[in-house]
Design a binder for these strands. Structure first.
Lengths: 234, 234
DNA sequence: TGTATTTTTATTGTCGACATGATTTTCGGA
DNA sequence: TCCGAAAATCATGTCGACAATAAAAATACA
């Protein structure tokens, strides 16, 4: 078990402990640094982050209620597994969420929202140019989260975050095996979505979101199909 | 502050503490026994439920991540307020959720799902006959939760639960002021929805869900309008 | 040698206590 | 009498320790 000793600032403000543990764990889970199914040892974590088990347990409770970890009673908490057999549920929800949030963004966007969208669009384009797959995954998440924010509906926003997090894990899973990367076409699609949102064109925003979701679904399904084929040939 | 001393079984199994506190608090929040905005004192709670503060804090973290309470740093946690100014967000999400889950239920329902639906339909009818408004609110929640379960999509199911919980608080808020109750028409609408789900008639399930949601939205809006009028005449 | 049972170990769930920061109260001055 | 500062009070955030339970290891037996 090689792990960086402790990249933790020994100076911690009171009250920031749980948030810190939550951020660290969530990042590692979404990055697949912590593999799905792997157990989370509270004592190891408390040593690594040099803090007591109490804030760590509270962060784990929070992660559990968001579905990122699963708490087994009287046994160790494990990172939630990725359910590859029921991906259609994920695709279905993701498509609807993309459509609804993009529609609402076209209706309710304000000036600040457009700035945020353009910022993450630029970051995404930068990552795409550098062929930085993890960077593209992360900035893609922020781009769509910004769309949800512009939609101004906290219920859809929460669903959006949950789906985007799950999507981050899913994409990460396949970028470990396939390095050919995300088609640059996504950059143009994002630009089109921004334009539709800016001009308050709700039907066009809806159509673009639907098409964008279809693209991603197709891409992931292709990756899975290739992955399956490899396994079969073994 | 009059509160029942402690309706807690002194015999508690190890590991059930957090769940117990969570259930108690969630019930009281949704019943409005704990008023929105009221602070939650960890020490009082620990005395009332005769347990340490640790499991209580973990239950509060879970409730906070579901939006039922709001944690103020270094200050007391408070029951989340009901945002009456942005109800359209709730109505919008509720309508879409009803439609999606009912559609999916018509597609994916199995025999056991129909039994559950009919069970809660009967319970709801009983409560309606007895003019038991709290009972109707609670059984209505379970009825729609059962529809979401039959739809077999955990993402929509989670959204459904969140919206139904919020709806329970909202309805409860108005049933404290108006006692004329829920129209009996809802019983028939529920029966129609079951029939559509049973016969796998997706378009009809969608239409019924939409109509049902419109009914509830109209009802709540009427209540709010009446409530406003009363306040103005003071 | 393989299996059932007991012992050991390790990790979780819970507890009481302390420190830190916020709130309230008290006290002094105008 | 009213306002501001200092002190006291109080609730939270964090900690280390203990008890209970499940997994692992060791032992006994066929």
């Amino acid at each position: 078990m090689t792990q960086k000793p402790a990249a933790c600032p020994p100076e911690r403000k009171r009250g920031s402990g749980v948030q810190y543990v939550y951020d660290v764990l969530r990042g590692e889970i979404l990055d697949l640094t912590l593999a799905p199914g792997s157990p989370i040892d509270e004592i190891m974590l408390s040593e690594r982050l040099s803090m007591s088990r109490t804030p760590i347990r509270e962060a784990l409770v929070r992660l559990a209620s968001e579905g990122l970890v699963t708490a087994l009673p009287n046994r160790s908490t494990v990172v939630s597994s990725i359910d590859l057999l029921n991906l259609h549920n994920f695709f279905d929800a993701l498509t609807l969420m993309y459509r609804v949030t993009t529609r609402l963004a076209a209706e309710n966007r304000e000036a600040a929202d457009l700035s945020a969208l353009e910022h993450w669009h630029r970051e995404y384009a930068k990552a795409a140019e550098a062929r930085d797959a993890p960077g593209m995954i992360a900035t893609n998440r922020e781009f769509h989260a910004a769309i949800a924010t512009a939609g101004r509906n906290p219920y859809y926003e929460a669903l959006c975050h949950r789906l985007l997090d799950e999507g981050r894990r899913l994409l990460r899973l396949y970028y470990y095996t396939f390095e050919d990367g995300v088609p640059a076409r996504y950059v143009q699609e994002h630009a089109d979505m921004i334009a539709a949102i800016e001009s308050r064109d709700v039907p066009r925003a809806d159509a673009l979101a639907q098409a964008h979701a279809d693209q991603i679904v197709t891409q992931i399904q292709t990756m899975i199909a290739r992955d399956r084929r490899q396994h079969i040939t073994l």
